[in-house]
Computed example of a mutant assay.
Amino acid sequence: MFFQLATSGIATGCAYALIALGFVMIWNTASVVNFAQGEFVVIAMFVALTCHVTLGWPLWLVLPIAVLIPALVGYATERVVIRPVIGAAEMTVVTVTIGLQIVLSDAAKIIYGGQPYSFPPLIEGRPLSILGIVVPRQSLVVIASMVVLAVGLHFLSQKTSFGKRLRAVSQDRETAKLMGIDVNRTIAEGFALSAGIAGVAGVLLAPIIYVSAGLGLPLLIKSFIAAIIGGFGSYIGALIGGLLIGVLDNLVGFYISSHYREVFTFLVLILVLLVRPQGLFPHHR
């Protein structure tokens, strides 16, 4: 049962890891903590729900649209909301992103209401048995998608001009500007990529949990904690932190009580900060 629960938690943890990855990407590029990151997940969920369930569009068409729309919203967010306050006091930037999170959350509640919606599985079929552990096909899709995306992001970062621009802006914005890099454009593209990653997480989570307008804040908190535990600024740390939170959630929910999941999540966060304040895998610029 322990391994069964851990395997199930890994699937949810993969989604947390992807959202945390978006946190880290924006932080490394623009030195901004985007507290609206969870709402990009919700946008993807409702885009997929509307297109697939309400309009009946096929999944092969719906999935890229559900990722593209949050990416466009993320790009617009940087241009309209974030760019005017970059360089201002840190509390100003934090307040702006919190305000954006509230606006997007309330907009979703106005449009879709507060009730939960179910989303059909991305892949049909009976669960698979691997070494005696029953694994739903949907969980395998989530895990495989995170692995593919993590490898793809690594390739993007190391082998493409866009990735090199992102790393240059992350390491030294002024020097990057002197080298002819359009810093503002790179940051906006980083926001778009981060929101797109959150969109992937939303698409993967939709069949596992009920789609609801109020999901953004809980997902935000879990993913933010995952990024801190892993080492804020570290991509590897974000991935591992997300997996740890996902597994911990499942184990606590089964062996103790689902009401204490958040309690133990924060206890682990406090413990990590006391023992290793820089996180498990600190990032060094």
Rank of each mutant, 00 (worst) to 15 (best):
Met1Glu: 11
Leu5Gly: 06
Leu5Glu: 05
Ala11Met: 05
Thr12Ala: 12
Thr12Gly: 13
Cys14Glu: 01
Ala17Trp: 02
Ala17Thr: 02
Phe23Ala: 02
Ala36Thr: 02
Phe40Glu: 02
Val41Gly: 00
Ile43Gly: 10
Leu49Asn: 06
Thr50Leu: 09
Gly56His: 14
Trp60Thr: 10
Leu61Tyr: 02
Leu61Phe: 05
Ala66Tyr: 07
Ile69Asp: 13
Leu72Gln: 00
Tyr75Arg: 06
Tyr75Glu: 06
Tyr75Thr: 03
Thr77Ile: 05
Val85Trp: 11
Glu90Asp: 13
Met91Arg: 13
Thr92Asn: 13
Gln101His: 11
Ile102Leu: 14
Val103Leu: 09
Leu104Phe: 14
Tyr112Trp: 15
Gly113Pro: 04
Gly114Trp: 00
Pro120Asp: 05
Pro120His: 04
Leu128Tyr: 03
Ile130Arg: 03
Arg137Cys: 07
Val141Trp: 10
Ala144Glu: 00
Leu149Met: 12
Gly152Asp: 07
Gly152Cys: 10
Gln158Arg: 15
Thr160Glu: 06
Ser161His: 08
Ser161Cys: 05
Phe162Gly: 01
Lys164Val: 10
Arg167Ala: 14
Arg167Met: 11
Arg167Glu: 12
Asp172His: 12
Met179Gln: 06
Val183Ile: 11
Glu189Leu: 13
Phe191Lys: 00
Val203Phe: 10
Ile209Pro: 04
Tyr210Glu: 10
Leu217Val: 15
Leu220Ala: 14
Gly230Phe: 04
Gly241Met: 02
Gly241His: 03
Gly242Gln: 01
Leu243Lys: 02
Gly246Pro: 01
Asp249Phe: 05
Asp249Tyr: 00
Leu251Asp: 07
Val252Ala: 00
Ser257Trp: 03
Thr265Tyr: 08
Thr265Glu: 13
Leu274Met: 13
Gln278Arg: 13
Gly279Gln: 00
Pro282Ser: 11
His283Cys: 08
